[in-house]
Simulated assay, not measured.
Amino acid sequence: MKFFLIEIEYVVPIEKIAELTPAHREFLQIQYNKGLLLLSGPKVPRVGGMILAKSSSQEELQTLMKEDPYLQQNYVKYTYKEFAPVKYQRFLMNWLEI
């Protein structure tokens, strides 16, 4: 399994983002239910967001994230940064599959 920090940058006014936020969060909840996401939330100040995810590949994750309503409407840009966790809290062992 590979791990990714996904940085979201809003490219439209926050009012448009707010309209789609409930649908975006519904989409994210589906991914949480599958065990693919660990955490997510808006940046402070609210100019984008961050998601911590896992996937077998970046390509697979990018394909999955194309279903995000924000991305479908071209309201955001996503940047994927793969990383290899070496230190972690013990309660994360199951999610990390270690």
Rank of each mutant, 00 (worst) to 15 (best):
K2I: 01
F3I: 05
F3C: 06
F4A: 01
I6F: 04
E7L: 12
E9K: 04
P13V: 10
P13L: 11
I14M: 08
E15H: 03
K16M: 10
K16V: 05
I17L: 07
I17A: 01
E19N: 08
L20V: 08
T21F: 14
P22E: 05
A23H: 03
A23M: 07
H24M: 00
H24R: 00
R25M: 10
R25V: 07
F27G: 01
L28T: 00
L28Y: 01
Q29C: 09
I30G: 09
I30S: 04
Q31N: 08
G35T: 07
L36E: 04
L36V: 02
S40H: 03
S40C: 10
S40F: 04
S40M: 09
S40R: 02
K43D: 03
K43G: 04
K43I: 06
V44T: 14
P45Q: 14
R46W: 14
V47R: 15
G49C: 08
A53T: 02
S55Y: 02
S57E: 04
E59F: 10
E60Q: 03
E60K: 06
L61I: 01
Q62I: 03
Q62A: 11
K66P: 06
E67W: 06
E67A: 09
D68V: 00
P69S: 05
Y70D: 02
L71G: 03
L71Q: 04
N74S: 15
N74L: 12
N74T: 12
Y75G: 05
V76R: 02
K77F: 12
K77V: 09
K81Y: 11
K81R: 11
E82Y: 06
E82I: 02
F83W: 07
A84K: 14
V86W: 15
V86E: 13
K87L: 13
Y88P: 05
Y88C: 09
Q89W: 13
Q89H: 13
R90Q: 12
F91A: 14
L92I: 09
M93T: 15
N94R: 13
W95Q: 03
W95G: 03
L96W: 11
L96E: 13
L96K: 07
L96P: 10
E97I: 07
E97Y: 05
I98A: 14
